[in-house]
């Protein structure tokens, strides 16, 4: 392992001053279909409801809903309303944005394990959502007090809801 390894390192400004450097700005736009099951879910959010779907074979209730059970591989179309309450599975404090810029105010985000039939307390899978948390402090996250905390959705005012996951402002502690 004494041979020379190929590769020519460039400093940032060396790269920008290279002859023949090509810079290109992509402009692609997309339109994503929510599909049938997710559309049900999004319509539910607009009405302030958390909608799940039940597998006729294993009985798991899925949130977010999908059109088929990924474990039994059977179609699912029995939609059920859930209370929306649950517990925090994990929570973190973000100081950076999508593009890694520092944020003025840190944001607490994580996973909510929702109360839903079809699972035991020990099961590896659960119904849940990825979302923001409010009403809990950074200290709660760091000390671990936040994990397992009971939470419920805080909804946006009805006239501001658009059928988006952001119709839920955040999940907040049940007792507040």
């Amino acid at each position: 392992m004494t041979k020379k390894y190929p590769g020519t390192y460039l400093k940032r400004d060396e790269m920008y001053s290279l002859p023949g450097l090509v810079r290109y700005k992509p402009t692609a736009k997309y339109s994503f279909s929510a599909g049938i099951a997710q559309t049900k879910f999004l319509e539910g959010l607009k009405k302030g409801k958390i909608i799940g779907v039940k597998c006729p074979s294993c009985g798991r209730v899925y949130v977010p809903p999908r059109a088929f059970c990924e474990y039994c591989h059977v179609p699912m179309n029995e939609y059920v309303e859930l209370p929306g309450t649950g517990e925090i599975h994990t929570a973190v404090i973000s100081y950076i944005s999508t593009f890694r810029q520092r944020m003025d105010k840190p944001e607490i985000v994580g996973v909510v394990k929702l109360d839903a039939p079809g699972y035991t307390k020990e099961s590896y899978e659960f119904a849940g959502l990825f979302h923001r948390f409010c009403g809990i402090t950074e200290e709660d996250v760091i000390s671990g007090k936040a994990i397992g905390m009971r939470v419920k959705p805080r909804w946006k005012p009805e006239n501001e809801r658009t059928g988006s996951v952001t119709d839920i402002e955040c999940f907040e502690p049940v007792e507040s």
Binding site: A91, T98, V109, R132
Partner: peptide, 29 residues
């Protein structure tokens, strides 16, 4: 950013590090 679900995850403005942080926090717990 492309790896996040465009409808249920991307509107929340996630950064890839979030998902690792969440997993790390869970593991620590």
């Amino acid at each position: 950013a492309y790896i996040w679900d465009p409808i249920l995850e991307r509107p929340l403005g996630p950064n890839l590090i979030w998902i690792f942080a969440m997993e790390m926090r869970r593991y620590m717990h």
